[in-house]
Design a protein around this nucleic acid. Structure first.
Lengths: 116, 116
DNA sequence: CAGGATCCGTTAAGATACTG
DNA sequence: CAGTATCTTAACGGATCCTG
């Protein structure tokens, strides 16, 4: 954050935000948590293709970043619930916007062009 | 895109969108191009820390994804201008939202907590 | 059930040098 | 000016096996 140029501050904000949702499954996780609290295996089911290791890691990162809350119930069998923190919820409009934009992009056939 | 579950479609849209702006400097590039057409070295100046190689690569990816347009002027010295495509411009609201959110995140002191 | 520990392959990204 | 060509490193993501 040197602030040598005119507006490096603004630039960093975009970077900061993107860094937080950077990770192959973070967007997906956040999106599904927007629907309410989920347990580990429930998230896993909604993110087929992601392994436990990766999922766990990204959940921990999201937690460390303060975007989600992790609640462990000391019972047996173990139960761990994940839900959006207030900060995470404040991302909802953006996730929704991304979803809408992604949908439009897909339907525009731009994906096909990309593959080509 | 198996569509086996209830709504894998929606999930993929979020993923699709994030994939397009995934890359350490893509968000920064797009943000600065929102201010108007820029030449290669102008972008470089606005993304200190990014090397030519990385910058070139990400610019090419953005171009391949149809988010930016690259215009080469056959003159000497060479001049190459980058600007947002209509599709790229449609991302502006999202980039702005990310910037606003990132700023709020930074000011909330959440970054400090993250480092700790 | 919800992970932790390990090993491994791929890719992103950085450093550096050179060119039309 | 705007790249390309190599090389190296670090991080990410995946697969598998094990445990409180």
């Amino acid at each position: 954050m040197s602030r040598t140029a005119a507006d490096p501050y603004e630039k960093c904000a975009v970077e900061t935000a993107l860094d937080l949702i950077d990770g192959k499954w973070k967007g997906v996780i956040l999106f599904h948590l927007m629907g309410g609290t989920l347990r580990f295996n429930e998230i896993r089911r909604r993110a087929p293709g992601a392994t436990q290791r990766v999922l766990t890691k990204q959940l921990r990162e999201l937690e460390a970043d303060g975007l989600i809350l992790r609640t462990v119930y000391a019972e047996v069998p173990p139960r761990v619930e994940y839900r959006l923190s207030p900060l995470g919820e404040s991302l909802s409009p953006i996730i929704e916007a991304l979803k809408a934009w992604g949908t439009a992009y897909q339907e525009s056939g731009a994906e096909a062009r990309r593959a080509a």
